[in-house]
Amino acid sequence: MSAQQIVFLVTAGVIVISAALVVTVRNLIHASLWLVITLFAVAAIYVQLEADFLAVVQVILYIGAISILIIFSVMLTRRVMADTGPQRIPQWPLAAVLALLVFGGLAYLLVQVPWPLAPNVDVSDTVLALGEAFVDPNRYVIPFEVATVLLLVALVGSISLALPERESD
């Protein structure tokens, strides 16, 4: 087994264990901290896949923004530190069976199909190509603009949703 494979297996182990804890731990703050560890390990997987830009974006976006938002809202919606009440619905065994079935089916399919692989090339500098493709009118400028509009709409929408209602209306 090569060093790369060992590194992959360790990272994958971290991902699976912490992801499992995210969905099972009772304390939601702990769950969100486990989520941070999962996301960080996924960023490590991106580094192993030589997608440095995506790894850094993963850290900025998921850890720097989304998980902090999640922790923030967990703190906001909790009056005491301890969690009370059930944290999972009574039908959770059914959910577990379904998740297992989905995993079995997906894993079976993904491993069975003989994916034709491209020859291994050096991809160390994709950032330049990515940047050019984003603003190239013949390639991805329209998806890029649509994404920006989506983000703008999300910004306006979340502000108007979370604003406290005024007394006058």
Binding site: S32, R88, A107
Partner: peptide, 30 residues
């Protein structure tokens, strides 16, 4: 691919089994 499928399935379990809406959102991120 198997790792991705595992992560996705754990997420599905979380979305279905969590009672707290923020917990569901976390599983969605997974």
């Amino acid at each position: 691919l198997v790792l991705a499928a595992l992560l996705f399935s754990i997420g599905i379990y979380g979305v279905l089994a969590r009672a707290n809406a923020i917990g569901i959102l976390m599983a969605l991120e997974l």
